[in-house]
């Protein structure tokens, strides 16, 4: 085992980590500041900018919309993604190879191009309501995570177990829910979390699909920052970071965090 690292490398890595975490610490500091402008280190400690978020209807509304869209799109993506992942693994021989590539496309095509195209064809062209178009867009961008992560779990699943159950008289649908699904549970949880956080943080697709009165949190943050330079956005950012921490705790409990470093 060679585990010795030269000191310059260690110093380098420490500096990189300071670079990675410093700005986030600064955001937290700025959010706690008692001033009306963004500053760091905070001058006077106060939580008033957190209260302010909920006093501002634009933030309140977009937080709700973002959570709704994230839940709905993730659920929808799982509902269509799990069967697709199952089919890709179980019936690989009879399905064309381009099918699995198709499900990667939402990652391959630039998100901003997808957003603009959805606006052109789906929202304006086909007259689909803003909220539905937004939901479809988010479902598309989170679908690859669902299909890929669940495919990966299914790849290590021994389908002969399923066949055994079926040959013993268990109906296929029941077999799926009692045998297959419990075996890929960790994959489903991971897919849900990755999809949820991707949807919550999305900018490029939502950018084009928000309409009058309907916006998502990241888009609202961008709009707010362009006009005001107050600590509200810093405190919203802290809320988002808390969500990230919550997500990481869930991942840690269910899968172990090293799961994410794959």
């Amino acid at each position: 085992m060679i585990r010795r690292l030269s000191p310059p490398l260690i110093v380098f890595a420490i500096l990189v980590y300071l670079f990675l975490l410093g700005p986030l610490v600064i955001v937290i500091g700025a959010a706690l500041s008692d001033t009306t402008y963004l500053t760091f280190p905070p001058q006077g400690l106060s939580l008033r900018w957190f209260e302010k978020i909920f006093e501002m209807s634009a933030f309140r509304r977009t937080i709700v919309t973002s959570l709704q869209i994230a839940f709905a799109s993730t659920t929808l993506a799982l509902l269509i993604g799990i069967p697709a992942a199952y089919a890709l693994n179980r019936y690989r021989i009879v399905l064309p190879s381009w099918l699995s590539t198709l499900f990667v496309l939402p990652v391959l095509v630039p998100e901003i191009v997808l957003g603009f195209s959805l606006l052109r064809s789906v929202q304006v062209g086909a007259g689909v309501p803003v909220l539905i178009a937004l939901l479809l867009g988010h479902t598309l961008i989170v679908l690859p995570y669902c299909v890929r992560v669940i495919s990966a779990s299914l790849a290590s699943f021994d389908f002969s177990i399923e066949e055994a159950a079926i040959s013993l008289g268990s109906p296929p649908a029941k077999t799926f829910f009692t045998i297959v699904l419990p075996n890929v549970r960790s994959g489903v949880i991971a897919a849900f979390i990755l999809a949820f956080i991707t949807s919550i943080n999305d900018v490029s697709v939502s950018l084009f699909l928000t309409g009058p009165g309907i916006s998502t949190l990241p888009i609202q943050i961008l709009a707010h920052v362009e006009q005001f330079f107050d600590p509200v956005v810093a405190s919203v950012s802290v809320l988002l970071m808390l969500l990230t921490v919550a997500v990481m705790v869930v991942v840690e409990r269910t899968l172990g965090l090293t799961f994410l470093a794959k």
């Binding site: 975490l21 700005p23 986030l24 900018v203 990241p218 943050i221 810093a234 988002l240």
Partner: peptide, 23 residues
């Protein structure tokens, strides 16, 4: 170290860009 690298990754683009606005 892995956790500390995952954390910024899962924090949104807007938040991380905004941080540099303050800096």
């Amino acid at each position: 170290l892995i956790i500390l690298a995952v954390f910024p990754l899962l924090t949104g683009v807007v938040v991380r860009s905004f941080a540099w606005l303050i800096v």
